[in-house]
Design a protein around this nucleic acid. Sequence first.
RNA 1: GCGGACGUGGCGGAAUUGGUAGACGCGCCGGACUUAGAAUCCGGUUCUUCGGAGUGCGGGUUCAAGUCCCGCCGUCCGCACCA
Length: 806
Amino acid sequence: MSKYNFKEIEKKWSQRWAEEPVNPSGTDKPKYYCLDMFPYPSGNGLHVGHWRGYVLSDVVSRYKLLQGYEILHPMGWDAFGLPAENYAIKTGTHPAVSTEESIKNIKRQVNDIAALYDWDKEVNTTDPSFYKWTQWIFVKMFKEGLAYEKEMPLNWCPSCKCVLANEEATNGVCDRCGSVVTKKNLRQWMLRITKYADRLLNDLEGLDWPEKVKKMQSDWIGKSYGAEIDFPVEGTEEKIKVYTTRPDTLYGATFMVLSPEHPLALKITTADNKEAMEQYIFDASTKSNVDRMTDKSKTGVFTGSYGINPLNGAKTPIWVSDYVLADYGTGAIMCVPAHDERDFDFAKKFDIPIIQVISKDGKEQELTEAYTQPGIMINSGEFNGMNSEEAKKKVPDYMEEKGFGKKTVNFKLRDWVFSRQRYWGEPIPLVHCEKCGTVAVPEDQLPVLLPEVESYKPTDNGESPLAAIDEWVNTTCPECGGPAKRETNTMPQWAGSSWYFLRYCDNHNDKELASKEALKKWMPVDLYVGGIEHAVLHLLYARFYTKFLYDIGVVDFEEPFTRLFNQGMICKKSSKDGKLYKMSKSMGNVVSPDETVDAYGCDSLRMYELFIGPPELDSEWDDNGIDGIFRYLNKVWKFVDEYKDKIIEPTAETEFARNKLISVITQRLEALTLNTVISGFMEYTNAIIANSKKLNGVDKKTLDDLAVLLSPFAPHIAEEIWEVLGHNESVFKQKWPEYDESKLVVNTVKVAVQINGKVKVTIEIAKDEPKESALEKAKQALGDRLKGDIVKEIYVPGRIVNIVAK
RNA sequence: GCGGACGUGGCGGAAUUGGUAGACGCGCCGGACUUAGAAUCCGGUUCUUCGGAGUGCGGGUUCAAGUCCCGCCGUCCGCACCA
């Protein structure tokens, strides 16, 4: 008897597939585009956690292949970024060199997965033939007025020495390195993503994405409906525009607050408050995001001026406080302490009057905290007695009529800070000319190549290392031919990944980013698999890019990713403190796929990656867990070896087992409950083996179908078994087996018999046993355990008998 | 603070969506084979005082609840003064 020699089998088939790909391109079959989020080619290589998503997407790809689709399942490298650059600073190695080495190593590891990747379709964001088009898209955005330069206080990471987009600085820390982000006033390139806010929000609805991700995006976009209202400043010509979502509370406004950055903050401050105000504004400007967020105690300084409430003429003191954000709404608010928690805190601290204007029952109460619920309007002149939800609509109408304000919409989403002060990124293809201003590099001169530099070190003054290369910086203006200087900032890491999925469709094209036909054939992506960490960043940017390319007629769809799947992480107990962490070098809990493949083979690792737990949840790596899979594959191997020459005609029971296996695997695979697919394999191959023992043989169809069903999961052993069964053509040229529902019908079923809902015995009866006789048999089986008067009898055919007795 | 998800044996996890809780696997226990071990195979494995009890805790709806409702407790995730 031959042994399951996985090393030999896997070597044999990986060579065979390299010679003759099982997924030929250019067919007229329907398409299926299954995409992995492409990795950053880190020098650390892959661990078994990285495999998880790649195995999942490959299983789906191979399943679709067997269902008759032509598959696009590509892989590439998101290779710009800081680790290679930091390594260059330390060692002097050019990032391009270390990146290439990392790619070579990771590619070797990725090949171990035995995914369907067609390396002819590979993309690399740092390849000039790729970033030419990254720059081209930027030029298009620039020409459409979507890219603009602006000086403003920005998130600055003191460790990366680089500005960060809002999305990269959540919780006030740098997304990449965890350093506390500070503010720095800098002139930077911005992308007008806010122009797309409504579309980015509305189009979420039609996507087959995890609800969690959709919610994170819609929260990030943060649309709110409200009103802008003008408060004249008493004794001046100035007006302060405030934004509020609670116009119904306008009668309760007892003070106003400007953000420290508000242009009027100092201007309307009276002489005796000036010094304190200057100090406060200065302190606020040096406060980090983290401090501003974690310390929620209210501080502020009175300007000495008053605003006039346009609705009732009330005089409201104007304060300056850092709890009001400069870049949201108008940077100024009207404050209603009775109905807003933050305003309540502030009013209590600075002893400002609190006027209740909404009440639960229409009566005024002693408020110990802000009342934020809807209710009945009080103390509100002509609006008294009205429901506050109605007043929310009526007050803005009234204000509009009187010319005091208007209804508006606001978003939390900010424009995208797009320039970075680092070396290893795409140069922004712009030229600054004294005569012509800022000019885009003509499209036929792209790409603007990244030049060689002497030092990769970032500077503290917010300048890119590129700024030091005079011969590169100094150029001629493409418009007037006069002297000009190149833009020295580079693009953020996200630029290439915002459109790379388009390039896979037609990666050798040097005329366009991809041809219309290729895009039409493959896009949009049918299934996109990757980690939840990109819920907002990459996925939001990619959607924005796609919508822009749609608007300029490059693509004919508005959403790039039809279905999204976020796989969970694989964790392992740390050797340091015994607690569960995601795999990382620093926690000492990394399991290398190289060693695992060496010990158990690729097929076992692939199946264990799926078996480890529900694919969308984090799972714990168990060093012994893979043994169970390895035993299973050995068992299958032995079974085929033993029975391949003992072929019998199918019987009702072999047909039942075969059809059951097909139905279970297919249904669970469709639902992507892949952990239960594997347990389904174990359960029903056991049934098949038991049958075969009993009948001393197996029918041919069962063996064949088992090989085909197994092939997306354990491609090598499936292919080998398929050959052993006497077939010449690859198993991947076969059709996914279909099951016959009628073969799954059983005549007798085991039914639980309950007394008062507690199971006492089980009986075997006909599937469609009539109620009368089912109850009769149930009572018989219960015998004298059934006591008291029968109150009710329930019979669910095929399921349960329940007798209620008192 | 606000929002969301989750809580099932020693462990990872199943449960046809209200119908026999613990599938499948790990681990463990026993047996076979073996000089012995490894591997393999077979059997057992929620607890139990053998009456029963049991899906974080307490209530509720129902003939029937892991599943639905209400209230707690705990864990994880997202957002974080967005007016």
